[in-house]
């Protein structure tokens, strides 16, 4: 039996209420690093959704079928980071071989994703105790959470890139130019997203 309402709750929570960037502070390096141009923001966002989805599947499987049955849960951090690093490498090679066009579009962002804390973050959230069920996610929930978290990240990244493209034309005090004003914009976006915390209909 699939709990559709629960899944919708996870999606809304991951994208809006607990947005990865603006509420959880995960994946800030690419958020500020790749948000100067809208086109590169879209590319990075797609790469993150892709890797997060695959990483959710594999880390969940690793945790459920290897770590827990063998009672070595304390190796989680080490195993997850290795799985993610290996996956990113594999995805990169596979894309290069089978879909050169997609590789062209995502290629330069893929290596950056290994050290993107959002990917390890989603793996840890999927396998940790969560606010919905008070235990780890099931496979389907983990998958949905992975995709939705990636979409949430992309949403924040694309919005930010749109704002920063406009900001380049603004006259700013010298001290605020560059990153400080990007932080202020992110703060204002976070303030807006805070409004979604009222959406508590599934608790």
């Amino acid at each position: 039996m699939i709990d559709v309402a629960g899944l919708i709750g996870i999606v809304i929570s991951a994208i809006l209420i607990q947005n990865f960037v603006l509420a959880r502070f995960l994946g800030l390096c690419p958020f500020f690093g790749v948000s100067k141009r809208l086109s590169s923001a879209v590319g990075m966002g797609m790469a993150v959704v892709f890797v997060m989805t695959i990483a959710s599947i594999f880390t969940w499987g690793m945790n459920t079928f290897v770590l827990i049955p063998n009672d070595v849960g304390y190796l989680q951090t080490i195993v997850f980071i290795l799985v993610i690093a290996g996956l990113v490498q594999l995805v990169e090679m596979a894309l290069q071989k089978f879909s050169p066009a997609l590789y062209e579009a995502l290629g330069i962002y893929l290596p950056l994703i290994t050290t993107n804390c959002a990917v390890l973050g989603v793996a840890l959230i999927n396998t940790g105790i969560n606010q919905f069920t008070n235990k780890g996610f099931t496979f389907l929930e983990a998958l949905v959470n992975g995709v939705a978290s990636g979409i949430g990240f992309t949403l924040a990244l694309v919005l930010m890139a749109g704002i920063r493209e406009k900001l380049e034309l603004a006259h700013l005090p010298k001290a605020l130019q560059g990153l400080p004003v990007a932080f202020v914009s992110a703060g204002l976006m976070a303030l807006a997203f805070l409004g979604f915390s009222g959406l508590n209909f599934f608790r």
Binding site: P180, A182, F183, V184, A186, L191, F193, L194
Partner: peptide, 19 residues
């Protein structure tokens, strides 16, 4: 102490440090 405050604080501290 919520998320937006974190962004605002680091923005102004960073601006001060740069200045």
């Amino acid at each position: 102490i919520l998320a937006p405050g974190g962004f605002f604080t680091i923005a102004f501290v960073m601006a001060a440090v740069t200045t």
